[in-house]
């Protein structure tokens, strides 16, 4: 009985690890997609007029999800301390703190702080669109990875668990 319970725990644990790893890949895709959607929102708002950055970021933070909402809200808050930290540093720092976004995604996003608020709306929109395009490409690659590797991880988790159970029994 104890053997059976142990075997079930080992099998379950291995399967959980495999599914967890596959979920991480999915979350990575979702974070990239949410960030790209957030940037698309900024682009649209900049197309409608010339909203000051605090209003633009506060509005976008309310209407975005995931890392985009976190980034926009953090930057909007930091705008009240511009005498201590300029906006490009603030954006870089907030980007580096984003928990959900991959390192590559952060590298793409970080330079946008040099563009936002500094140029006219058309130039800013072009800058945001370029970054959004790169993030969408990254998200497409991540989606493909998630589809292929996720299946592998899940299979590895299940088969690895079964193998260990056979070995232990």
């Amino acid at each position: 009985m104890l053997h059976l319970l142990g075997a079930a725990l080992v099998a379950g644990g291995c399967a959980w690890l495999g599914f967890q790893k596959a979920m991480e890949l999915k979350n990575r895709v979702r974070a990239l997609e949410e960030t790209a959607r957030g940037l698309a929102l900024l682009e649209r708002e900049l197309g409608l007029g010339s909203p000051p950055l605090p209003r633009l970021l506060e509005g976008a933070a309310r209407r975005s999800e995931g890392p985009a909402a976190e980034l926009f809200a953090g930057c909007a808050q930091g705008l009240s301390r511009l005498d201590q930290e300029d906006f490009s540093h603030l954006w870089r720092r907030q980007t580096a703190c984003l928990a959900g976004l991959s390192g590559e995604g952060k590298e793409i996003l970080a330079p946008l702080g040099e563009v936002l608020g500094r140029y006219d709306c058309r130039d800013q929109r072009e800058g945001v669109a370029a970054v959004r395009g790169q993030l969408e490409e990254l998200a497409a690659r991540a989606r493909e990875d998630s589809r292929r590797q996720g299946r592998v991880y899940r299979a590895l988790g299940l088969s690895g668990g079964a193998f260990l159970v056979i070995l232990l029994l």
Partner: peptide, 16 residues
């Protein structure tokens, strides 16, 4: 430049 950033709330586009 920092003065302009503070005065415009980092929104030069809005004060052009």
């Amino acid at each position: 430049e920092q003065l302009l950033e503070i005065a415009s709330h980092a929104s030069v586009h809005a004060v052009l």
